[in-house]
Amino acid sequence: MPSITIENLTFSYPDCSSPALYEVNLTIEAGEFIVITGATGAGKSTLLRCINGVIPHFQPGTLQGNVWLDRATPSGRVPVARVSAPQLARFIGSVFDDPEGQIVSPIVEEEIAFGLENTGVDPAQMDDRIAKALADCGISHLRHRATSSLSGGQKQRVAIAAVLALAPKILVLDEPTSELDPDGTEAVLKVLFELNKNHGITIIIAEQKVTLLAPLCDRLVLLEKGRIALQGPPRKVFMHPYIFAKLGVELPAPARLAHALVQAGVLPPLDSPDAPPIPLTVEEAFTLSRQLL
């Protein structure tokens, strides 16, 4: 069942001659973990802003086409642009790239409570929901900490927990790890993976770190100058190293190894029926190499 359906979406920022997104069509299934990638300026953030309603609710510009949100209610799907930003919060949780700008409360538990208060949740239920959101993000121990004292990775997990408390069906995250160190990045991605697997939350994330996300995601979408250049499951899209090279997106090392093995004549062409699947992780690459020896 589709969760988000994007139809012929074209968007231009004010006073920009060329559109930041051009005729984008994309259907995102409920429960999917989808990674949007591409070079800087390819339009990743713009696409996410159209999905989470920041465009048109906060960012002006010219919008054509539609982004449909399936609310799984009898009234069916609605264009995101028609649902007010606070209303959208119940369906789509948005996490932005900078950990500072999105945290509004001095204490972690107040930050989690904020969305619950806004959506009129009964205060008697709040403690449980705060505890659950924090536990799901692996940060129960931070509950009473001052938000200003947290590391970047902790702040991003607080930001995720804060939107998660509203029980959204979809999480939209714009480079949530761009300002984080490797440990923080790993912790945040692990949380997203578990939310997707255990709670069936649709994850839509813009990231440059394809290597880390390939083993976690269902689908990769490569953007080029506001258009979808390539999309599919990671093992499929990694069959096209030249497109990655052309777009300036780094092909993960395990996939590069597979291509090198083909070139060396050790492996059959990767699209032939007897070729092994492209490895996504170092472990898979190791297993493949071992089989060959």
């Binding site: 906060f58 606070p86 959208l88 932005f96 700008g101 999105q102 619950l116 208060e117 806004n118 009129g120």
Partner: peptide, 24 residues
């Protein structure tokens, strides 16, 4: 811009809906 960002962070979490409740 900073105020705009804060407004965005608050509204995308439901700030402005009628019937607000209070944790404490």
């Amino acid at each position: 811009q900073r105020a705009e960002r804060m407004a965005m962070a608050m509204e995308t979490r439901g700030f402005g809906l009628p019937g607000r409740t209070y944790y404490r």
